[in-house]
């Protein structure tokens, strides 16, 4: 149920726009892969990724692609 409520109500805090999300996505993902606190470095990104299904999917794909290259999978 929480997931469905999140789809309806989105994140409670501030969040980036889709354009801002795309502009920051590569840096955010590299910070995640390196183990750095990406959410602290890019405020509002996590909220947007949870509220925007399309940006969320694209983030998952870029993270999987870059993380896979790092590990050689």
């Amino acid at each position: 149920m929480d997931e469905r409520l999140r789809r309806l109500l989105g994140a409670s805090g501030p969040e980036l726009t889709c354009e801002e999300c795309f502009a920051e996505l590569d840096r955010y993902v590299e910070l995640e892969v390196s183990g750095t606190d990406a959410d602290a470095a890019v405020p509002g990104m996590r909220g947007h990724l949870e509220g925007c299904p399309a940006c969320g999917e694209e983030h998952e794909s870029l993270l999987a692609l870059v993380a896979g290259e790092e590990t050689g999978t």
């Binding site: 795309f22 996505l25 590569d26 840096r27 993902v29 590299e30 694209e58 794909s61 870059v66």
Partner: peptide, 22 residues
């Protein structure tokens, strides 16, 4: 240069592919 060029470029291809597939 806030990420590697390859990561920056990847996001354009992922976006184009995701949009076309949807």
């Amino acid at each position: 240069g806030r990420s590697r060029f390859s990561t920056w470029a990847y996001k354009f291809a992922l976006l184009e592919a995701a949009v076309k597939l949807r």
